[in-house]
Design a protein around this nucleic acid. Structure first.
Length: 782
DNA sequence: ATCGAGCCAATTTTT
DNA sequence: TTGGCTCGAT
């Protein structure tokens, strides 16, 4: 061991060469973002400018080479000739274009002069982004960076809160309420206050409450500021009651996770200091989307070391309605005077025409940081604008152009249809089905929002946290066990009077004096729950879930229901069980609590990519961060896009314009913009002119598409063919031979229903006749 | 307790 | 036009 042939100087030279080589494919701006490890960095990353790559490489650089690269006096003590040879060989390979990952040994040597992973915190908004970052780092390193936190704001806060639960006035098994749970609580309050639900919608109050929390307003402050404004006074009252109930339920909503973490830090300087010391290097993705709490949270954590790198694009801020505050990014330099501003303006995604159009549109906004994307790509094709007769003609046009693209060698999955609102998808879907074009809708209703999933989750939640009444209320009579609304009201009233939560009050069923039937139901329920309670901790989450599903009779009651609906619910439950199984197997120390925490912070978006080859339809909001060779933007009319609700306020209009910018910059090769002369909205025919955004695109960047074919060819024909999209995006017609995952081969006997909910009747020779929803069933055409 | 008719409102939604 | 929700009849 020890060095023989080589000088220490040689080691440092090699290391430097390797470092240069590793980052050699980055452009100068990206490189600067990567190498500026110390101090505040504002990285303005335009659309398609290689932002994720810059972040990933920045972390890699910190890990391997530290924040301030410098030659050390001594090489690692255990450096050997073999190591030197390894480094030389790697360099040789790299020169010949064979960079794959880094050899373990090299990583091990280098990282001794780097930043410890546990000092790094990388925050994203979505699980998907966090996962992607982790994956790419893993790919480069061939190992995971243990101790580093790469996660969403909410996940990070949840972890901190659970760790610091001791100083929090909360039980350690607190539940996390999602939007539906929140709404339920507000609705109950509004009802009890005898407010007219029509005039004072719970939704509105909920959004005001969310704003209070995001602005870190406590109930007193909210009440003080509300004085004189009737609605706000009511809102403040509801806010106070809402907080009280969540507290009583030992529950937090999404906003609480952030707000309580900030409060925790503000009230406990020692705890804050601990995390400041731990996270010496902080990265924040999509900084333009941060709201006030998130802003403060980051500010607190970064205050000590100021090694804060935020990445974002003010032009892509499209979540103001979720309290995202664009000032956070616009004023970053003011907040951190030492800031180094780095602009990533080279775009690697779109053609010149697309980029020019996007630049022109966004330049109409006033509140923005000046920047101009450029590309080395050629001009590419002109954008296409089509004036459709109506929404059907619009959909027809999209189908037709996609078919043309297909003849051109493009794939379905290379095409995306972007719209302003979800409702616009209906007509498009109809036409896609008729034309036999496979498509997927991204977004829409989510797995964890399905009734059966919410039910089983509610059981699990209540078992983890019996104080939790919203979940309890949900499942107490599911499946039916004769505990009706009237009974519940009485139990609740009793509980309220005695200061008990619902679950405690239930135990007092004798005191309350209920009907025999109700009592029997409650006893049955309590006995069941007792059985489950004993199983918590002794069984795996999967085991517990199965126990609940069978002993409550949930599965049985679904089975006895006929129809495709209950069938798909059973399948969803099966899917849920595979989620629990995966968790049980993969988690280091599986617990019910952790499982719940994890799943409540998960959404669907995390992986539509695996889907089959199909056209992707989604809202423009959902498209952020994605890219497609061909992008269709439909509904380019005043009132639709920009949306009618945004026309009054300049601010909102600018947000719509940013949305347009986001939509345009999704495209790599081609953009098709469609507006309709008339459109059926809410059952009424509407005539609106072309979107102002169309007028903002210079004429030399687009061409108008003219109809060549006969109008009658474009009207919908009612053929017997009934197509459907599916998880697999397949189309089925009567007579098709199909293969089902479980039941094997069969023949489609009939198809009925509309939209995505087409129910197929399929004859399986071995299993008999089954009714299935294509949407959910694991079916394949053969 | 449960189901169906009728009424009303109607963006976007990373967690 | 749709879907979500309330209220009234079984």
């Amino acid at each position: 061991m020890g060095l023989t042939k080589y000088s220490t100087e040689h080691y440092w030279q090699l290391r430097e060469k390797i470092r240069e080589r590793l980052f050699s494919h980055l452009n100068p701006a990206q490189l600067e973002a990567v190498k500026t490890g110390k101090g505040p960095v504002l990285c303005l990353a335009g659309a398609g400018s290689g932002k994720t790559m810059a972040m990933v490489y920045r972390i890699l650089h910190l890990y391997l080479f530290g924040a301030e690269y410098q030659r050390q006096v001594k090489p690692p003590f255990d450096l050997t000739d073999d190591d030197i040879e390894l480094m030389e060989a790697w360099l040789q390979d790299a020169k010949e274009g064979r960079i794959t990952g880094l050899p373990q040994r090299m990583v091990a040597l280098f990282c001794r002069n780097g930043v410890e992973p546990r000092r790094i915190l990388a925050i994203t908004f979505t699980n998907k982004a966090a996962q992607e970052m982790k994956n790419r780092l893993e790919q480069l390193l061939g190992e995971t960076m243990h101790g580093m936190w790469v996660m969403t704001f909410h996940a990070a806060c949840l972890r901190i809160l659970r760790r610091e639960i001791a100083v929090l006035d909360y039980g350690k098994d607190f539940s996390i309420y999602d939007a539906a749970d929140q709404l339920q609580v507000v609705r109950n309050i509004v009802k009890e206050m005898d407010l007219d639900e029509k005039k004072y919608s719970p939704r509105m109050f909920l959004s005001i409450i969310s704003r209070f929390k995001c602005e870190l307003k406590n109930t007193e402050k909210a009440a003080r500021e509300a004085q004189g404004d009737y609605i706000m006074e009511k809102a403040a009252t509801i806010y106070a009651e809402y907080c009280r109930r969540l507290k009583q339920n030992n529950a937090m909503d999404f906003d609480d996770l952030l707000m309580k973490t900030v409060l925790l830090f503000q009230n406990n300087p020692d705890i804050l200091a601990k995390y400041q010391e731990r996270f010496q290097y902080i990265l924040v993705d999509e900084y333009q989307d941060t709201n006030h709490v998130q802003y403060i949270l980051v500010k607190l954590l970064a205050a000590r070391h100021q090694n804060l790198c935020v990445v974002g694009d003010d032009d892509q801020s499209i979540y103001a309605f979720r309290q995202a505050d664009i000032r956070n990014i616009l004023d970053f330099e003011r907040d951190y005077p030492q800031t180094k501003v780095i602009k990533l303006e080279q775009n690697y995604r779109s053609t010149g025409c697309i980029l020019a159009a996007a630049n022109e549109v966004i330049s109409c906004n006033k509140a923005r940081k000046a920047k101009a994307l450029w590309t080395e790509k050629g001009q590419g094709e002109l954008l296409t604008i089509y004036e459709a007769n109506d929404e059907h003609d619009e959909a027809r046009f999209v189908c037709e152009r996609i078919n043309a693209l297909l003849d051109n060698g493009e794939n379905y999955r290379d095409c995306a249809v972007l719209m302003r609102t979800n409702a616009q998808s209906r007509v498009l879907e109809e036409w896609f089905m008729k034309r036999g074009l496979p498509y997927v809708i991204v977004g829409g209703h989510k797995f964890y929002e399905r009734m059966e999933i919410k039910d089983i989750m509610a059981y699990l939640r209540v078992l983890a946290n019996p104080q939790e009444s919203v979940g309890l209320r949900r499942i107490i009579n599911v499946p039916r066990r004769g505990i009706g609304e009237a009974t519940l009201q009485r139990v609740e009233e009793y509980g309220e009077a005695k200061g008990m939560v619902l679950f405690e009050a239930l135990w007092q069923y004798e005191e309350i004096g209920l009907s025999t039937r109700a009592s029997k139901g409650i006893i049955g329920f309590l006995e069941l729950m007792e059985g489950f309670r004993e199983a918590v901790g002794k069984m795996t989450v999967t085991g517990l879930t199965e126990k609940i599903l069978s002993e409550t009779g949930y599965v049985e009651s679904l089975r006895s229901e006929k129809g495709a609906d209950s069938q798909s619910r059973l399948e969803n439950l099966q899917e849920f069980l595979s989620v629990t199984k995966e968790y049980d197997e993969q988690a280091e120390e599986p617990t019910l609590q952790e499982f719940l925490g994890r799943t409540s912070l998960v959404t669907e978006l995390d992986g539509y990519e695996d889907e089959a080859n199909a056209v992707v339809m989604m809202t423009m909001h959902m498209a952020k961060g994605l890219e497609f060779p061909n992008v269709f933007i439909v509904g380019m009319e005043e009132g639709v896009f920009p949306h009618a609700r945004s026309l009054l306020e300049e601010k909102e209009l600018e947000e719509e314009r940013r949305l347009c910018y986001v939509a345009l910059t999704r495209a790599k090769e081609r953009v098709f913009l469609v507006h309709a002369r008339q459109r059926n909205l809410y059952g009424r025919m509407n005539h609106s002119g072309p979107s102002r955004f169309l007028e903002e695109i210079p004429e030399d960047l687009w061409k108008e598409y003219m109809v060549k074919d006969d109008f009658f060819k474009t009207t919908m024909s009612t053929s017997g063919r009934m197509g459907v999209n599916g998880g697999n995006s397949m189309l089925f017609s009567v007579g098709d031979k199909v293969e089902h995952k479980k039941w094997g081969q069969g023949v489609v006997v009939s198809a009925k229903g509309e939209g995505t909910d087409v129910e197929l009747t399929i004859a399986f020779p071995s299993q008999g006749i089954k009714k299935l929803l294509t949407k959910y069933a694991p079916l394949k055409k053969i």
